[in-house]
Write a protein that binds this DNA or RNA. Structure first.
Lengths: 121, 121
DNA sequence: CCGCATCCTTACTGATACTG
DNA sequence: CAGTATCAGTAAGGATGCGG
């Protein structure tokens, strides 16, 4: 998803793809979701997202920061204290995240028949 | 993505991730975008999305169909005539696509260098 | 506590050629 | 026209260990 698209071979200017490029990947949306209620520390984030590895958390955080969606705040103390928070641009993404969340939930109700209707394919 | 997530290892029930799984990948959103105005034939789709290969178009279409977002209509004639259209579930995704599109466009205005027209629009 | 470096595996994507 | 099959390259994601 971090794939760089050459302007020369930019077949489609679809802004949806732009959005996908930014919050694509397995962990970005979850991280953003966790940050919605305020700043969170690195290890707290790791604890909130059980399956994530430190590597992926670090990489995702860096990309999110690089894309201007989150802010990284380092406090020079021992032990180190670093927390992450949404930037204004990140805040602007909230409605989108909300819409995607709503649809994802709706989708599940439409495709997850408890046990009846074997059209599970 | 075609990635299958085991319920047992489902670390996060974030519905946003569900949505991302469904329209993740390089071509899905573009295809959905092309289908928004009505049914389109296979080759027409291929023509509307210059960079896509037949393979990726076929695979993406199959996944979209499998996920219930689009409908495949085969007319048994020579030459073969197959067209794809949004299903009601696909239609329900339109607002989400629109929100993502809006944000993507907004994001570009926020990150586009003022001094140059580097946005390959 | 926070993060980086290395290596490895898998998944996604693409080019090309062939078929009903 | 609308696919399918095979092959291969790249990049995303993960495991583990070290450093500030």
């Amino acid at each position: 998803m971090a794939k760089d698209i050459d302007p020369d071979s930019m077949h489609c200017n679809c802004p949806v793809t732009t959005t996908l490029e930014i919050l694509g990947g397995r962990w970005k949306p979850i991280i953003l979701y966790c940050l919605q209620d305020g700043p969170v520390r690195f290890n707290a984030l790791k604890r909130m997202i059980p399956g994530i590895t430190q590597r992926m958390l670090t990489l995702s955080l860096r990309e999110l920061e690089s894309d201007g969606l989150i802010l990284r705040h380092v406090r020079e103390v021992v032990p180190p204290h670093v927390d992450y928070a949404m930037s204004p641009l990140g805040e602007s993404l909230k409605p989108v995240l909300h819409a995607m969340s709503e649809w994802g939930a709706y989708y599940r109700t439409q495709t997850a028949p408890p046990q009846a209707t074997s059209d599970a394919a």
